[in-house]
């Protein structure tokens, strides 16, 4: 086991690009997980309370763990701090992704305390907060959609490759039929007939993205089925299920991991494209593509609406693609 790690990890971290890609992905996952702690109008800590209102010590923790969230969020902590009635330690981005402010519509990026680091949109919502919370949707869609695609791809491709014969013929035809449907048009049609929601988007992207995986898995299974160690296992009486999941599948993991990395990049891109077209996660929910969609309406005034979300999407896609590419080289030394 130790040897595997040395073999895998040393080439992996010997390259600066790969390290940066991994760091970007870690940052991306971290941002998604802790979005509500990174961008929140609620302070971490409160002291020196000179108001009559009963304010908890740590509003952000109370909001996460308490039930009556509304009461807490209706207090404008920023206002109290500005008036000097309260001292507080805020999150790095002291805004909520939903909070509109009609006094500050299309405000350009500004630094400093309570600044809008990435500007505001047409409703005065803080773009940085929206992008940070949008990360959550992006990674959810990316992971779940690719998970669904992997399950379908492995089951269908695996069955075709393992059983061969008529099963292979039928399943291969089925894969070829599904390939004929242009993904984007199919996704749009399904989302038009169903209601666009986070779950529907994840399922649709997953259900349209498994064909490539199935083809590779089929080839992989065809190849492995004839190897000596599988024959040996079969002769010693292993069942089909055991042969598939214990012997063949673990040996086909390399292409699966590579395709998962590329798949996540693709799914993140598709999700933002759908939000950009206005059929992504429903309206008040933040999403990278949604911010980019707004930029279309104000191309001359608001450069920050184009620059930041596009850059976020680009960075994520490039990181996952790089990772996939690198993994392919490491796991498939023939190509090097």
């Amino acid at each position: 086991m130790k040897k595997i790690f040395v073999l895998l990890l040393r080439p992996f971290f010997s390259d600066r690009l790969t390290i940066s890609a991994t760091l970007i992905i870690i940052l991306f996952v971290f941002t998604a997980t802790f979005a509500r702690f990174i961008a929140s109008p609620l302070p971490y800590l409160v002291w020196n309370n000179q108001t009559e209102i009963d304010i908890p010590r740590s509003p952000i923790l109370t909001a996460v763990f308490a039930k009556d969230r509304n009461r807490l969020e209706s207090i404008r902590y920023r206002q109290l701090v500005r008036e000097g009635k309260l001292s507080a330690l805020f999150a790095p981005v002291p805004y909520s992704p939903y909070e509109t402010n009609l006094d500050q519509i299309l405000h350009p990026p500004s630094l400093g305390r309570f600044g809008h680091y990435m500007g505001t949109d047409n409703l005065g919502r803080d773009v940085a907060a929206r992008l940070i919370h949008g990360t959550e949707n992006s990674i959810l869609v990316g992971l779940v959609a690719v998970g669904i695609a992997l399950v379908f791809g492995i089951l269908i491709g695996g069955a075709a490759g393992y059983y061969g014969g008529l099963t292979d013929l039928l399943l291969s035809r089925f894969i070829e039929i599904v390939i004929c449907f242009p993904t984007m048009i199919l996704i749009m049609a399904v989302l038009a007939l169903l209601k666009p929601s986070l779950v529907n988007i994840m399922v649709v992207i997953g259900m349209t993205g498994w064909t490539g995986i199935a083809r590779v898995i089929r080839g992989e299974f065809l190849k492995r089925k004839k190897t000596d160690f599988v024959t040996a296992a079969r002769l010693s009486g292993a069942s089909h299920i055991r042969l598939i999941f214990r012997h063949i599948l673990p040996n086909s993991l390399a292409p699966i991991v590579v395709m998962a990395a590329f798949g996540i990049a693709g799914a993140v891109l598709t999700e933002s494209a759908l939000s950009f077209l206005g059929i992504g996660v429903p309206a008040p929910e933040p999403s990278w593509g949604d911010v980019l969609k707004l930029s279309q309406d104000y191309p001359d005034i608001a450069w920050w609406l184009t620059l930041f979300p596009g850059f976020f999407i680009f960075l994520t896609v490039v990181a996952f693609n790089l990772l996939g590419d690198r993994l392919r080289k490491i796991l498939n030394p023939r190509e090097q």
């Binding site: 990049a265 980019l292 184009t306 680009f314 790089l322």
Partner: peptide, 24 residues
């Protein structure tokens, strides 16, 4: 080529429209 491959098409389209079309 790698960078081009990862650039989201709709973002590039918006940027191109903004800087090379329309007149600003």
């Amino acid at each position: 080529l790698y960078i081009l491959y990862s650039l989201p098409g709709f973002w590039v389209a918006l940027l191109l429209l903004k800087y090379f079309a329309g007149g600003d």
